[in-house]
């Protein structure tokens, strides 16, 4: 079974992954609308919405997995390692929540209007 080592980078990596997700999401939406904009009449059921949603789900799954991994690797005794891994687990989880929240509009809105 894989476990995570207690390292402060885990405090930042979840949200870094989220940041990459965000950049690709926003960039992908912009590029998609610049190259092959779906018609406004199609509403939110377009290829671009589907791609962005899929993108959201992939990243959210990854972050949830990391959150679970960090949670499972947390040692029972109090101390630095426990502090780092517990906090990291929560941050991975929140990064996953942030990913899902930010991806939500791609399920509801037309992409280019």
């Amino acid at each position: 079974m894989k476990t995570l080592r207690a390292h402060p980078l885990h405090l930042f990596s979840g949200l870094l992954i989220w940041a990459v997700y965000y950049v690709v999401l926003y960039g992908g939406q912009g590029a998609g609308c610049a190259i092959a904009p779906p018609p406004a009449e199609a509403g939110s059921s377009t290829w671009l919405n589907a791609v962005l949603l899929l993108h959201t789900l992939v990243f959210a799954t990854l972050l949830l997995y990391l959150a679970w991994l960090a949670y499972r690797s947390t040692p029972a005794e109090r101390g630095n390692a426990r502090f780092l891994l517990r906090t990291s687990a929560a941050l991975y989880l929140l990064a996953a929540v942030a990913t899902l929240a930010i991806g939500l509009p791609s399920a509801l809105l037309p992409p280019c209007v």
């Binding site: 406004a40 009449e41 509009p105 509801l108 809105l109 037309p110 209007v113």
Partner: peptide
Amino acid sequence: GIPIGHSLLPLP
């Protein structure tokens, strides 16, 4: 908010 925002758009 989202339905209101949507209703304000200059959609066809």
